[in-house]
Simulated scan of single mutants.
Amino acid sequence: MSAFDNNPFAEPANDNPFNDPSVTQVTDSNVEPVDQYNPFSTTEGLATHTTSDPTSSYQPAVLQPSTEPSPQATAAAAQANLLKQQEELEKKAADLDRREQELQSKQNNWPPFPRNFPIKPCFYQDFSEEIPPEYHRVCKMIYYLWMLNCVTLFLNLLACLAYFISDGSQGVDFGLSILWLILFMPCSFLCWYRPIYKAFKTDSSVSFFFFFFVFFCQVVIFIIQAVGIPNWGNSGWITAFTSFRMNKAVGAIMIIVAILFTFCASLSVVLLKMVHSMYRRTGASFQKAQQEFSQGVFTSKGFQTAAQGAVERNN
Rank of each mutant, 00 (worst) to 15 (best):
A310T: 02
A77K: 12
I256R: 13
Y163R: 10
D5S: 15
V62E: 00
S56A: 03
M185Y: 11
T202C: 08
L145I: 09
V270P: 03
V62S: 08
W146H: 02
F164M: 02
F9P: 02
G236E: 00
F189H: 01
F216D: 10
N19Y: 07
F298E: 13
D203P: 01
F184M: 09
I142S: 09
H136F: 11
T42K: 12
V220G: 00
P230G: 03
L181R: 06
N6H: 11
H276D: 04
S2P: 04
E88W: 12
S52W: 06
V206I: 10
K198G: 15
M254I: 02
A306Y: 00
L83M: 06
H136A: 07
P133S: 12
M1F: 14
A258K: 00
S243D: 11
F222D: 05
A61N: 11
D20N: 14
L158D: 07
W180Y: 12
Q295I: 10
W110Y: 14
N38R: 08
F200V: 03
P111F: 02
A289S: 01
M254S: 06
T67A: 15
C187F: 13
M278Q: 13
F123R: 00
N16C: 09
A162N: 03
T239C: 11
K140H: 12
I223Y: 04
I229W: 08
T27D: 06
L271W: 05
L89T: 10
Q101S: 09
I178L: 04
S66E: 13
A159W: 12
P8C: 04
A93N: 11
D35G: 10
I119T: 05
E100N: 15
A73Q: 10
I224N: 13
E134A: 05
E88M: 12
Y163I: 14
Q85Y: 10
F303V: 10
E100A: 13
L148W: 14
N234R: 04
N19M: 14
N81V: 01
P69Y: 03
F4N: 14
L63H: 10
F4S: 10
L46R: 12
V26E: 03
P12M: 09
L145C: 01
Q64I: 11
L190D: 10
Q291P: 01
K288H: 07
A249L: 09
